[in-house]
Design a protein around this nucleic acid. Sequence first.
DNA 1: ATCGGTGTCGATAACGTTTGCGAAACGAGC
DNA 2: GCTCGTTTCGCAAACGTTATCGACACCGAT
Lengths: 324, 324
Amino acid sequence: MADVARRAGVSVATVSKVVNGRYGVAQATIDRVRQVIDQLGYEASLGAQSLRSHRTNVLGILVAEFEPFSTELLKGASHAAEGTEYQLLAWSGGNRGTRVGWERRSLARLSGSIIDGAVLVTPTVVQAPQGFHVVAVDPHAGPTGMPTVDSDNFAGAVLATQHLLSLGHRRIGFLGGRPDLESARLREAGFRHAMSEAGVKVDERFVRVGGYRPETAEGPARELLSRTRRPTAIFAANDLSAIATMEVAFSLGLTVPDDLSIIGFDNVPESALATVPLTTITQPLQRMGYEALRLLIDLIEGVDRDTHVRLPTQLVRRASTRAI
Amino acid sequence: MADVARRAGVSVATVSKVVNGRYGVAQATIDRVRQVIDQLGYEASLGAQSLRSHRTNVLGILVAEFEPFSTELLKGASHAAEGTEYQLLAWSGGNRGTRVGWERRSLARLSGSIIDGAVLVTPTVVQAPQGFHVVAVDPHAGPTGMPTVDSDNFAGAVLATQHLLSLGHRRIGFLGGRPDLESARLREAGFRHAMSEAGVKVDERFVRVGGYRPETAEGPARELLSRTRRPTAIFAANDLSAIATMEVAFSLGLTVPDDLSIIGFDNVPESALATVPLTTITQPLQRMGYEALRLLIDLIEGVDRDTHVRLPTQLVRRASTRAI
DNA sequence: ATCGGTGTCGATAACGTTTGCGAAACGAGC
DNA sequence: GCTCGTTTCGCAAACGTTATCGACACCGAT
């Protein structure tokens, strides 16, 4: 900035004013400074900016891990940042190997300095530092007052279950998600609600807890399918689990959907490409990322708006379910 | 830091020394300061650190877009950062809608201040600012001296072509990638090399340029498959294009692999899940991300080592190719 | 001629760190 | 008791910005 000032024959204060579009500098000076800036390829130092003004126009998005689910959110969020004056920075908490509390530490390091706010896509929600804005996506906790974006997990689960019921299935298995996640809780609740509303009793031996990951789903899926009197349909709490279930079914010599109907949840891109394209409940993941970042920006800019966004879910029929 | 200093009864200078493990502070003082730090949850301000010492221990990885390919790289890179003192920040250049040169600007903004070095996963490679370390993955340019990590695209393409040839195919189509990418160039070169070495003449009408993306692959694929005398096999320059080609084939009433063999390149996770699981050339994407970050760290720390890493490719046979 | 208003600019303090250097304290050796 | 080396610590400057405030020039009106 000192260089720019010297070459343009003005003071650094004036350069700063030009860069930030402040009032009180002559048009001729503005043009001159702008030209020198372009010529030198000058970019303001984020560090110094943050240090002085506590404002950087950089936002963060923290994901637990880079995988399809969060990638879709990232895509949506980065799309929302486009065209605005904000830049988006993503980082992951490293693997779950690291000790608990990493979200807080990881956030503290950046929040104090470099970023003006953050979207959290992490299993456990974390207290935001003072004067720092946070939006949680699909958060762990119940209503804490923290701004959130999620999809209607309960209604989606009802949708999925009703779909299986309408196809004539009665012996329906449920493969749950991470028990500490609100979304997993709601999906199971939706399943039970739809069952009881249809007057079908839930066979508790058909309910297993997974963990949203292929590795944690395979075991429970195998249990479910190995019993002599096995379910005719399985509702898996997310697509990755559903696909894992499908593979277990294949390995047991079952065909899908003839021997077993499977329905998932999430509609990640992979599910459409599965060996048997997966019937599932779609969450508008990209849109959730988009909305989360919009909400964050509005929060920072002091816009008065609803701080809870719930997006609708929808059934997408593909080939993995059929009438009994 | 001032708070910490006050509560510990020392000066800020001493706190700084404790945090950075500098020599010259008594063990008793260290313990006292550490305790206060934990108690207050103090984290140093990145901005101030960067401003003063030009060193933050934060590394960046810039991807053109968040999609499966870069997600795998991100996963590998973040894995490499784990356990080190470095933290990894990812960001994308927004969509290709933005004007050219965004890599340079985007990089300049962060490189000057917040990050010590960066891994670039972008189509066009960009000149690194002075004293700033950069590693390019699968870069555009030829050998520019810039440190790079890539896979052996040429050998991989030869592998793919030989596979098709060994299955008896002679009328082989080639669906290229983005012409401005080195990897795309090398894959076509490998294809041609393997063909000529086998004494098979390349039918230029069977060679089409795509663009690595499903949208840009569909048109050329349709051209290739709509001719009356169509190829019996297609080598697509990446998996996304191969999958798109597969879908075009289906829409034309062709079955894979009976009517048409298809082989891809990359082995993204989706390819194993394709309607007909895709035979492809695997690049160790996660490992490439891992190696790129390791290389970057070594560069920063002044380790004397080879600055070009080339990883092997391998044929993975799945169901989308068969003997003629 | 004086005055007030307006438009334009620069000097300067502050943000939270790191680091070189000097000061103080302490113990050992004579 | 004095010197000298060693250990431990704090002072203060610097990093690149931004914001406040005062200086100055110019103009029109009195």
